[in-house]
């Protein structure tokens, strides 16, 4: 029995399936994280800048953008996945597989990223921003030359957290035809009751989370000049 399972796991066919799943998972999480940052970074900055204690307070913009972000943050991921299927078809031409998953992953995670970015940016000392203002910096210069570079370590650390969160989403996406390790875990572990395969997938996912987190912490520390 055990022999059979081991044989199945390490069969060439299974190995290539897992390898395929791993690549798909990495592809989905990394692309989604990147695109989520393309959207989330400027939105997060907009939230910080327009905050009532920000460089250019604008309650109307801040409340509107904040509400949209909160709305997407509060929709459960699985429901969001199903809800954005038409949009996936429009953008990538399909509603299943890795590519389709990326669309919903981005929509689900960009607001999360925006909040992560906002929180990192808010850590920047108000005094430094004031000093920059006193030197005649414009809002754009404050964002690009002060907030982003000063918050860099925290932003990198946040990116590690975001990417692991997004990794978790990819696993969930497996349940509704998303592909990747999550899909393998559900197909084999849940539908065919091959728990060993399921736990193997979980183990690989845990490993990836660890690696992402380690890389993030390392880069954050390496980029931080506040440490003597």
């Amino acid at each position: 029995m055990l022999n059979e399972i081991i044989k199945e796991i390490f069969s060439a066919q299974m190995l290539s399936l897992v390898w395929q799943g791993l690549l798909e998972t990495l592809y989905m999480s990394l692309i989604s994280t990147a695109v989520a940052y393309v959207i989330g970074l400027p939105v997060g900055m907009l939230l910080v800048v327009t905050d009532k204690d920000g460089v250019k307070p604008n309650p109307a913009v801040n409340t509107t953008v904040g509400s949209i972000v909160n709305f997407f943050r509060s929709v459960p991921f699985l429901i969001l996945m199903v809800a954005v299927m038409p949009l996936s078809r429009l953008i990538v031409g399909t509603t299943i597989g890795a590519k389709a998953t990326i669309v919903s992953l981005v929509i689900a995670s960009a607001p999360y990223v925006a909040r992560m970015v906002e929180s990192s940016a808010k850590e920047v000392d108000r005094g430094v921003i004031e000093a920059s203002l006193s030197m005649g910096a414009s809002t754009m210069q404050i964002v690009r030359k002060v907030i982003l570079p000063e918050a860099k370590p925290s932003l990198i650390y946040g990116a590690a957290i975001s990417s692991t969160t997004i990794l978790g989403y990819t696993a969930m996406a497996g349940a509704v035809g998303g592909g990747g390790l999550g899909a393998i875990a559900i197909n084999y572990g849940y539908h065919r009751k091959e728990t060993v395969i399921m736990w193997l997938m979980v183990f690989i996912l845990v490993l990836i989370v660890q690696v992402f987190q380690m890389i993030g912490s390392f880069l954050a520390k390496k980029n931080d000049k506040r440490i003597r």
Partner: peptide
């Protein structure tokens, strides 16, 4: 508080 850019 000096307010220097800590990353520069």
């Amino acid at each position: 508080g000096f307010n220097l850019l800590m990353q520069r």
